[in-house]
Design a protein around this nucleic acid. Structure first.
Ligand SMILES: [Mn+2]
Ligand SMILES: [Mn+2]
Ligand SMILES: [Zn+2]
Ligand SMILES: [Zn+2]
Lengths: 145, 145
DNA sequence: TCAGACATGATACCTCGTCTCAGTGAGACA
DNA sequence: TGTCTCACTGAGACGAGGTATCATGTCTGA
């Protein structure tokens, strides 16, 4: 079974129709290497209008097919999800490579805060930024050349 | 010394002029209760143009007079800073109340990741969302009535 | 077979910010 | 005192990113 079929089945299982425009968006998503903006997708995706691309990305996010990646400048990107559960990312600001972090690093803290702060905590953002080893060696090479 | 004077001195100390438009923006910032968007500020701030308001907010952020508050929908707000050092926030999505968290909860994790991931980590986003105790009691009262 | 639900996409519209550029004015200096 | 300079300003254009509207099309189940 292809990835496209697999995602289609998940859509149908939730009662959504698998239409040609949706198929086009899903296909475009599946061939993205790293993280991408919705605008990126629009350019690579004849066969679906602007509104439909936005709507489909929201759907895929709800289904867990893609995950949201918040960049350091505050812009929102997406990425094929490699983990079913809640997790966070380490993003290379040089080449864009994303490392999924195994589990939520602040779940203990959330519990602790729920007790001490009086807030009932319902969500959080957590993303890390840096340079991967490949990008760091490049920088060093560039400086010395 | 008024807050406005105090901020003005900090500007001058860095070589910036304290002009009437800047004073207007600072005054508007000082009378914001919670967190606010730049657009909020624009409406409350005759006496400075759009570009100047954005420019002044950036200045105030660099000076540490305000801190950035990332909301759960990804939009960026600001808030009078109550702590000089790097810190994070716990935001009530009901009433907007913000709790400053004492210190960076992930600094240990950043060190650990720097070792294990091969990335040199240079930044992160971390914000928490929930409902404060006041908002939770309101919800309960609303449901039962 | 057909009513109603679901889906689409052109288009208008909104926010959030940046950029440009001509003009202003404060202050350094002669 | 005049003049030069340079930070600062704001109108307005621009662009990215995203939502609302709505006429139209398609599917599905009774
Ligand atoms: Mn992920
Ligand atoms: Mn703060
Ligand atoms: Zn990299
Ligand atoms: Zn609250």
């Amino acid at each position: 079974m292809s990835d496209l079929e697999a995602v289609s089945l998940r859509l149908e299982a939730r009662g959504y129709r698998v239409t040609p425009p949706r198929r086009a968006v899903i296909a475009a998503v599946l061939q993205q290497a790293g993280h991408f903006s919705v605008e990126d997708l629009l350019h690579r995706c004849r066969g679906a209008g602007r509104a439909t691309v936005f709507r489909t990305i929201r759907l895929l996010t709800e289904l867990g097919v893609v995950c949201r990646v918040l960049l350091d400048d505050g812009s929102l990107h997406y990425r094929l999800s490699h983990r079913p559960q809640h997790h966070h990312h380490l993003v290379c600001t040089g080449c864009g490579k994303v490392q999924d972090l195994d589990d939520c690093a602040v779940s203990d803290l959330v519990r602790e805060l729920s007790g001490s702060s009086g807030y009932e905590i319902e969500g959080h953002w957590l993303e890390f930024y840096g340079h991967c080893s490949a990008c760091r060696s490049e920088v060093l090479a560039g400086v010395s050349s």
